[in-house]
């Protein structure tokens, strides 16, 4: 009997199942499919950002920068954990007016390049709170297909395929201008580096000569000491220590003198090649690697008299 009840049960359940599918078949309008590029889910309106300001109360998606308000302080660049913001700024000249932000702050830096690499951004929203001008903000655009941000000729499909198209440049400085600024800065930096190299070379040479002179002086001193020892031995036993001290003092003086003599000759032609660099910049460019030599250098420049005096002294000694 269970055989027949089995069959009737099977037929009954099959018909029930067919009823369900037919019920859905005749109602195709109730579909759950989202025709994605044509339709999108509504963007949630609830507050999911941080902070109280309206700018933060949006869904965390694409970043945008109101570049007119940006003062180029790089606070956002420093805040980003993945280093996907890259800002290049240049100091405004004394007569340049870069305008003021909507907060009334005067802009002192020209933001020549403001790049956000959205392909690396992790939407953590850590870059927006530090901004003093509240000009870097999250937008609800999660599709990355809006054609703002200067890349107007890029279609959504291209942007999905090419990672480089997710790198957004927000600065309004033109590409040629940016190149010019870059070249300028590079030449200045190169000049600085050359300067440093020359100085380093001079310092190294000076150190070498110093060492050579020290050797000579040492030999002299040794000879003198030997003589002195001989003299003292023959004349006076008690004052031996005192004489050796005075001899050492004279040694150091001779070293300094020889150094000055050479370095002054070397540095003058080098400074001729980079005439447009002001003096303060050189002094400010002093690195902590070799402060002693350089301070000695400046002393030389400032006191040529001293130099002559010391040479006479040396000759006297000799």
């Amino acid at each position: 009997m269970s055989y027949f009840s089995n069959i009737t049960n099977a037929v009954g359940t099959l018909i029930a199942g067919m009823k369900v599918t037919m019920g859905y078949f005749v109602r195709p309008r109730e579909h759950v499919t989202l025709q994605y590029p044509d339709e999108v889910w509504p963007i949630p309106t609830r507050n999911i950002g941080v902070g109280e300001l309206d700018a933060y109360n949006t869904i965390r998606s694409k970043l945008t920068v109101n570049i007119d308000d940006c003062i180029g302080c790089k606070a956002c660049e420093r805040a980003c954990p993945v280093n996907c913001i890259h800002i290049d700024t240049y100091k405004a000249g004394p007569d340049d007016d870069l305008g003021i932000t909507s907060n009334g702050t005067k802009k002192k830096l020209l933001t020549a390049s403001f790049i956000i690499d959205m392909s690396e951004c992790m939407f953590c929203d850590l870059c927006t709170p530090p901004c003093p001008e509240k000009c870097i903000t999250m937008t609800p655009d999660y599709q990355f297909i809006s054609n703002d941000n200067l890349k107007t000729d890029v279609t959504p499909e291209q942007r999905w395929r090419d990672k480089n198209l997710l790198i957004y440049q927000f600065s309004k400085v033109s590409e040629t201008e940016r190149q010019r600024l870059k070249v300028e800065a590079e030449t200045a930096a190169r000049a600085k580096a050359e300067m440093m190299a020359v100085k380093k070379a001079a310092a190294a040479k000076a150190a070498e000569e110093k060492a050579a002179a020290a050797k000579v002086a040492e030999e002299k001193a040794a000879r003198a000491a030997a003589e002195a020892v001989a003299v003292s031995k023959t004349i006076q036993e008690n004052t031996k220590n005192n004489t050796s001290e005075t001899l050492a003092e004279t040694n150091t003086e001779t070293v300094l003198v020889s150094e000055h003599g050479t370095s002054a000759e070397e540095t003058t032609p080098a400074t001729d090649t980079v005439t447009d660099i002001p003096l303060e910049s050189i002094s400010s460019a002093v690195t902590p690697e070799a402060p002693s030599e350089l301070t000695a250098d400046t002393e030389v420049v400032e006191s040529p008299v001293d130099h002559e005096a010391s040479t006479t002294k040396e000759s006297d000694n000799g």
Binding site: F25, H31, T33
Partner: peptide, 8 residues
């Protein structure tokens, strides 16, 4: 199949 599964 799509209509029966409430798809398009």
């Amino acid at each position: 199949s799509a209509f029966m599964q409430v798809r398009l």
